[in-house]
Structures are given as C-alpha cells and as structure tokens.
Design a binder for these strands. Sequence first.
RNA 1: GGCAGGUUGUCCGAGCGGCCAAUGGAAACGGACUGUAAAUCCGUCGGCGUAUGCCUACGCAGGUUCGAAUCCUGCACCUGCCA
Length: 423
Amino acid sequence: MDRVSVDPGLLDDLEWRGLIAHSTDPEALREALTEQPVRFYVGFDPTAPSLHMGNLVQILTAKRLQLAGHTPYALVGGATGMIGDPRDSGERTLNSLDTVKEWVQKVQRQIEPFLDFEGPNAATMVNNYDWTASLSTIDFLRDIGKHFPVNRMLARDVVKSRLEAGISYTEFSYVLLQSMDFLNLYRDHGVRLQFGGSDQWGNLTGGVELIRRHEGGKAHAFATPLVTKADGTKYGKTEGGALWLDPEMMSPYAFHQFWLNAEDDKVGELLRIFTFLSREEIEDLEAQTAEKPFLRAGQKALADAVTTVVHGAEETEHAKAAAAALFGGGDLRELRGETLAAALREAGATQAARGTPVVDLLVEAGLVKSKGEARRTISEGGAYLNNERITDVEHVPGEDDLIAGSWLVLRRGKKNLAGVEMR
RNA sequence: GGCAGGUUGUCCGAGCGGCCAAUGGAAACGGACUGUAAAUCCGUCGGCGUAUGCCUACGCAGGUUCGAAUCCUGCACCUGCCA
C-alpha cells in the first residue's frame, strides 16, 4: 500500500491557488486528503496530437497532489477519444481508430515527464480503451446504463444547450464512459478521487454517483477553474491557434513569449495556477507588478517558470536569449553573428535566394499569408526589415542589408519576428 | 417514409436574378498611445506585380438565363413536426 506521509497543507494551497472551482463534499475531501495518501486520477482525451494550456492545469495539479504524497493515475482516453465529449460548439467529427491510437501515444509521452513513475507513490498510466473496447453492449446497458436516469442526463448544461442544435446518442453517452472509468479505477485500483476542468463537472459527478449507486462507495471529485483572459473571454487564441505543449507545434520561444505577454491583471492568477513558486514569492511578484508594472517582473518570472516546467531550463535560456537579442532595443548589427543566428532560429527562420523582393520574403518567412497581405502590411507601416520600417513595397534587400553576412531580420508589428538566411 | 425549414467567408449572421468578393457583429492583424500589458481611437481583413481586369468562393452536381449566392432538378447532410 501507499506508505508515504501526506502534506496536510495541500488543500489549503490548492484553494489559495484558486484551483478548486467546484468540489463534492469539501469536508470529506479535506479529511480524505489529510489523513492518508489518496489514489486519484485525471483523464486526457486525445483530441489533438498535443496537449495544450487547458490540459496543463490538470497536469500540474496532478503533480501538486503527487508532491504532497498522493498517488496519480494518468488516464489517456483511447476509448472516450473515439466518442467525443459533447461541447457547446456542436457535434464533433469522429476520428479514426488509427488517429486516436497515434494521439494516445503522443499524449502519454507528453504527460510522462511531469509525473514521477517511481517511488512509494509512483504514478500509473492507464488507457480506458483497455476496459471499454471489449465491453459488450448488453453488459454496458445493464451494468452502467441502468444507473443513469435520462432525465438527469438531460438536465446537464452541455446537453441542454445542445438540444436545439442537436446531439447524437454517441456524444450523449459520453458521460457513461467517463463515469465507468472512475468506477473501474475505484474498484480495481482503489482510486477515490478524480478531478478535471470545470467543463468536466458533469462527468466528474457522474462518476462519483455511479460509484455510489453501483458499489455503495464514497468517492470525491473537484474541478479546476477555466482560465480566461481578463475580459472573461477564452484563452488560447495566440497566433491563430491553441497554446500547444508540443515544441514541434509551438516553439519554446513562442511559448515563452506567450507568458511574457500576460496581462497585468492576470499575472497573479497565472503564477498561482501554473507555477510551483511559493506563496511568499508569488505575493512578492504581485506586489512588484502592482507597483512597477512596466518592469513586468511577474510576467518574466511566469514565463521562465512555466517554460522551464514544460520545456526545460535549457530551452528557457535559449528563449530568453533570443528575446533579449531581438527585443533588446540595441542595434542588431552589433550582435555577434552566432548570437543573432541562434536567436533567429529560435524565433523561426527560413532560407531564401538573394535578390528576392521583401514582399516575397515576408510570405516565405510565414509572417503574412499572401503577397497582397504583405503589400498591405507594408503600406500600413507594419513591416520592418532589420528593425527599420519598410516604406517601399517594391524594396529588394541588397548586400548591405545583410547582417552577419547572410541574415535579414523581418518583423511584422511589434512581436512577429522571423529570420531569413539569404543564400 | 411524408411534410416543412435550413446548409454563406475563421465564427455568428444578412442577402433571395444584375449595383455581390457578398451588409452587420465577433475574432484576427497593423498603426497611434504604452511597458513585447490592458483599455481606447484609427485602419485592414479571398488570390493575382494592381488590372473600369482575371481566377477562386456562397453544401455537391447539373440546368434555365445575356447574367445566379439568389430560380429549377437531382444528391448529401442538419433541424423540426408527423408516421
């Protein structure tokens, strides 16, 4: 059995960090987490080849629980990923088994570095495909379905909101699968706690209730809050996509930049949710942000901490060095060639033939989608070559524009940078 | 299976034979102001070396017409009601 001493301050810390948005029976949860090590699980559906910011909240919360002495079960939804959790935006497109299997592997590999798979409270990786795929329809309907009153299922917010636009039986049934996961882990592994994002609340309580009805058992659940921007709108719309954890899908540099650009009003909240800095450190950073916001001490600490947790210290240093070189305000030409080249590779770099007009270079560097957009950007005064605004749409960079022998630094607006190595 | 309504650009949503590359929101992007914040204001927001031009686009495939996102036919999908 799990023989580790647990940190009695865990729940207070989670609450202080604002990580508990909803909870079943708070008193019982506190008691359970304080008395002894608890086996808990958190699930991730493979809906994309990479996890993102929203999932990171869960991963880090799982790590907090493990650090406090509890035992994690990380579940990847090989089965639930085949079905699709209902969401307001409408029915999902089903992915093929091959796609889901591939994404399951990627997601598992992404979670692994965050948890400790050795020691007295070692983490366990599970896949609900293992117990769902072979389940017969009759068993499913008799053993699981019997415990789900349809009237209750219809009352769930997601379902209600989908009744107009339509919802398939497939997605409607999703909650049964996730609840069954909890039941199985409860029965076979002694898992007594599940948490997830607040949008998962219905699924979380579904499991708790199923355990009660089916086994007469007592299980717990809590939901972490939805992280939003200061104006309440959704995050994740950076550079036209979500904030991915996979460095192939989002460079560590871009990832670091995202946190660095956090709104003042959000820095404290983000530090509490996404970093392991202590309460004292965070309160100090919040005070600094309040007094001298222009120094952005909070943003810097946040960006460094989160990037280090996700991509490692080395990548963080690279990202910082690149940002310092490119945003430093100094003359680019004074930078050493290697420094510049490294910074540009970090920010994103391409190659092009000498004599290519800027308009085409902007397209090739990925800063704009078309030549028309490139011309528009230039005429709006939003395009820069080596930190100088480009005024001539027809401009063709020459030899004396090259920095360190072969580089051009293109920028769109303040933050979108790209290097082009001229061949 | 029957009847009715629907399918428009990243999203929502107008248009209902020429004045439509398509009104209006939102998102996004650029500029100004700043701190690589927020808010605000201004501008842009299908492609093409830029053209009273051509190409692509209003679910898919055909058709009517000098001309169709708009009308007709078939198909697919969605929603509601009936069986």
